[in-house]
Amino acid sequence: MMILLRLPSLIASTGAAALAAGLLMALMAPAPVSNAASEGLAPPASFDSIKDPATRSAALFTELGRVLTSPRCVNCHPVGDRPLQGDSQRLHQPPVYRGADGKGLAALRCSACHQAANYDPARMPGHDPWFLAPREMAFEGRTVAQLCAQIKNPATNGGRSLADLVHHIGDDSLVGWGWAPGPGRTPAPGTQKEAKALAQAWVDTGAACPVD
């Protein structure tokens, strides 16, 4: 394994963003394509001062919502059949469609470009598998409150229990890519571990939803 492009100044500026299974690839931090600084997530304990459990739970979700509404999550949870792309969240270029399995049409599968790991010299994200969230799990255009209701509903969350949700957010490696998207993309706020802690705390406090 060779790590060929170490840019200490950049690495320092982004903190210890964990890389996904980016073997063989250059270790590089995101380019300043977005002004949206990727600030850390507040730990669950910082919400302890909120006495009402439902209010606290909703506040925890609101903090988690910073992750869910980040381009890294929304872009592959689109409303339509085309994913979004980039911090500007424009339609994916080249045009690709979800296809029967969420992995693209036969003519252009996601895996034609998205391989097992990021390829940073070309800013190409990668993970195996790489696919779109089902249409009923769209995040695009949803408020945090709407997302909360949607995400709790097994009909719109892929049939997941609350525990499954914590696991999906906290342990899924494709979700984890959102914190290590490679150069040219702003990572989701915080870390996957911090997001998992928030999700767990939200569930533990009754999984209440914020109100818009």
């Binding site: 492009l5 840019l7 100044s9 590089m28 931090a29 380019a31 940073d120 150069p183």
Partner: peptide, 13 residues
């Protein structure tokens, strides 16, 4: 050259 090309793209500093 290739490494430098990418470095200049990614690192404005």
């Amino acid at each position: 050259y290739d490494r430098a090309r990418i470095a200049f793209r990614e690192d404005s500093a």
